[in-house]
Design a protein around this nucleic acid. Sequence first.
DNA 1: AAGCTATTTGGCAAGTTTGACAAATAGCCA
DNA 2: TGGCTATTTGTCAAACTTGCCAAATAGCTT
Lengths: 98, 98
Amino acid sequence: MSNDQRYTYMARVLKAMAHPTRLFILDKLKQQDCCVGELRDLVGIDMSTMSRHLAILKEADIINSNKVNNQVFYHLLCPCVLDVYHCMSELKANRGNK
Amino acid sequence: MSNDQRYTYMARVLKAMAHPTRLFILDKLKQQDCCVGELRDLVGIDMSTMSRHLAILKEADIINSNKVNNQVFYHLLCPCVLDVYHCMSELKANRGNK
DNA sequence: AAGCTATTTGGCAAGTTTGACAAATAGCCA
DNA sequence: TGGCTATTTGTCAAACTTGCCAAATAGCTT
């Protein structure tokens, strides 16, 4: 796999994560699997909008879903994606030192 | 700082990283500081486009710059942003197990 | 089948991103 | 000052994103 392909792949995953609502979703799913309506109630946006955010994360293979009766439960595949948090905090702490 | 603010902040940083060219830049800057023309030659895009990619990374406080004569050298502030790489590889390896 | 709940998809408007070209700026050196 | 190199900024078009509403789908339960 070329470096080019690697950058393209990683950009795809980072892009999928790069939205406040989607980061909230990942954080929540780290604790437990959730269905769409549950997440909508927590965030307070339209169900259709929540469904699309979940589709974006799923498309990037960060989460997957399984249907139980008429509900769809989403599950975080790779909790380590949230490890970036530590680094981000460090970055933030450095601001102002410019 | 509220969780809301944290997600917004992290989304801003991830979004700045979420482009193949910008990931290449970060990887390169991890090895050594570079000026704009150098990076343009490596990537093969317009100098103005490269300058804007660098501005996006700088605006997110991931890199900074200092001018030496008529060249601007860019410097990676927090090499750990690239640690996500490992996790991404893990994610990638998991694909297909769906 | 009809009614119900949960979720996804179509379509649209407003806003953002990307990349290129041209023009502007900044700083060197003669 | 004028010419030179390096970089940034203005402007534009094409493409993409986000959020909402309405309509479609999926799967229970009666």
